[in-house]
Write a protein that binds this DNA or RNA. Structure first.
Length: 499
RNA sequence: GUCCCCUUCGUCUAGAGGCCUAGGACGGCUCCCUUUCACGGAGCAGACACGAGUUCGAAUCUCGUAGGGGACGCCA
């Protein structure tokens, strides 16, 4: 009999296999586990499932850990984020370093006759599969070795033959019932699976086996994981029963899908956390957005801080159908978090993007704060700052094609001429908001225009396009010299040709 | 193919038998604010996959059908 529940303390884990970047689907699973731990004053453990030696790498582990750090999902136990050395009392936390543990458990199952050495080769398995498929039957593997005695098998092993250890699924109870936190009662017929591998022929354990062993040994109380593992749970339940171990509470969250309702794919755009970081997304926005893909706040709040999520998280608000990853809504969520930041903090985030794109800026914090105050409502991501700040950098100044219509107005040359003259006549080297308002009045009188016929040509002469920020707010951020220079370029253009 | 899971506006979701003429958010559209754009504000359109039951009453419970997804590895 396997029991469910009855653990001293909430202990949850996120167990990535380090075979690439941290995918947003994985990040969501990590987040749910993290939130559950924080809400229930439990432990959050990072376990590294690196038993697939061919695909796992230290570089990938590094990437996953960096992304988790960036997101702010911290763990009590697992690899130290800097040194990668284990922290915690239940280590090692890398499965590749736990082989002896798995082998001991496998031995116990072997001794009890609940598992057996199987010497079937790949070719033999293929052959058997083909034969069974031909007659349309169920293709569970039938191993001729399932009833061999341990001594018999060990002799063959000594002779140098390679064998895997298989779990024996004959003689088990008819079906297994899983009480899933999200899906309720799920019943699996035990003949759904055949004798599955526990240990590979090189002694390395296979996922379903080490997962159970580790969850038990690490005293994991709750397992929140992706739906793709739902049918694996049957195998795991069988192992728990064979070892008479108490099972944790399982909860299977559904998959994150692309807009074509397929599993999220790279072809449609970013899918990994580091890509979103490069695209100017805030970690709190990513967290907020992915949390809402399958979970909802009790008061239906949409813009949430990590703290608010930690305080209000519960598994009963997790739901079971697949969720499409809507990049448009992610942008909106990002904009909300971005606008909630004060200018000083925001500058810290924006500056690296400007530097990377060689956009010049003034070092004065007053200038930076003022610029951000103006640009914030125009920004959805940090990269948006690049185009915005370019308008203030002379080497990026150019009259955009969309300005042509404005320049074709008969009154526009007069406005530009007046603007340039008035600017040059001005005694100040920096133009304040009040100063600009005076100049603007002069231009109005001199050119005899008003409304959009006045403002649009002037805006083109300042930022290179007819739409954008209010002139009186942006002009104080520029030097008179730069403004005169731009006015000259604009005037030359309006008098010349559009090519 | 077999087994398992899922199915509410285009998308994310609220909804635990009467509070549902189905609520919110993103997106769309309209209007307001505004010299433009953006922000902000107000409003409009838009969904219970289908079919049978159970019940006085069903988005909610049951069963079927259809569609989607997942698993069937010496991957995780």
């Amino acid at each position: 009999m396997t029991q469910q529940g009855s653990f001293q303390k909430v202990r949850v884990r996120y167990a990535p296999s380090p075979t690439g970047y941290l995918h947003v689907g994985g990040a969501r699973t990590a987040l749910y586990n993290f939130l559950y731990a924080r809400k229930n004053h439990g432990d959050f453990i990072l376990r590294v499932e690196d038993t697939d030696e061919a695909r796992s790498s230290m570089e990938s582990l590094r990437m996953v850990i960096d992304d988790m750090q960036w997101l702010g999902l911290t763990w009590e136990e697992g690899p130290n984020p800097k040194t990668l050395e284990d922290i915690g009392d239940f280590g090692p936390y890398k499965q590749s370093a736990r082989q002896k543990i798995y082998q001991a458990v496998a031995q116990e199952l072997l001794q009890k006759g609940l598992a057996y050495y199987c010497f079937l080769t790949d070719a033999e398995i293929e052959q058997q599969k083909a034969a069974v498929t031909a007659e349309g039957g169920q293709h569970h593997l039938q191993s001729p070795y399932e009833n061999w005695s341990l001594a018999q098998a060990q002799e063959k092993l000594k002779a140098g033959d390679k064998a895997v250890v298989r779990f024996k699924t004959k003689n088990l109870k008819k079906d297994y019932v899983l009480h899933d936190l999200i899906r309720g009662e799920v019943r699996f017929p035990s003949d759904m699976v055949g004798d599955f591998v526990l240990l590979r022929s090189d002694g390395m354990p296979v996922y379903n086996f080490c997962c159970v062993v580790d969850d038990h040994l690490m005293q994991i109380s709750h397992v929140l994981r992706a739906e793709e593992h739902l049918s694996n749970t049957l195998r795991q339940l069988m192992i728990y029963e064979a070892m008479s171990w108490v099972t944790p509470q399982f909860g299977h969250v559904s998959l994150v899908l692309d807009d074509d309702r397929q599993k999220l794919s790279k072809r449609k755009g970013a899918t990994s956390c580091n890509q979103f970081r490069d695209e100017g997304y805030l970690p709190e926005a990513i967290l907020n957005f992915i949390a809402l893909l399958g979970w909802s706040h009790p008061e239906e709040k949409e813009v949430l801080s990590l703290k608010e999520m930690m305080d209000s998280f519960s598994t009963d608000r997790l739901h079971s159908s697949g969720a499409v990853f809507d990049r448009v809504k992610l942008k909106w969520v990002n904009a909300q978090h971005l606008r909630a930041k004060n200018e000083t903090d925001l500058w810290q985030l924006v500056e690296p993007f400007l530097v990377k794109n060689q956009v010049a800026f003034f070092s004065s914090p007053q200038w930076q704060n003022q610029a951000l105050r103006i640009f914030k409502p125009y920004m959805e991501t940090l990269v948006d700052a690049v185009e915005l700040f370019k308008t203030l950098d002379d080497k990026h100044f150019q009259i955009q094609a969309e300005s042509k219509e404005v320049y074709d107005w008969p009154s526009s040359p007069a406005v530009l001429k007046a603007w340039k003259d008035v600017l040059e006549a001005s005694v100040d080297s920096e133009i304040t908001e009040e100063g600009f308002l005076k100049l603007q009045d002069e231009v109005k009188t001199k050119s005899g225009t008003k409304g959009k016929f006045l403002f649009m040509p002037m805006r083109v002469a300042v930022i290179g396009k007819p739409h954008g920020t209010e002139l009186k707010t942006i002009i104080p951020l520029m030097t008179k010299k730069a403004l005169v220079n731009r006015a000259e370029i604009a005037l030359a253009k309006v008098n010349g040709q559009w090519n």
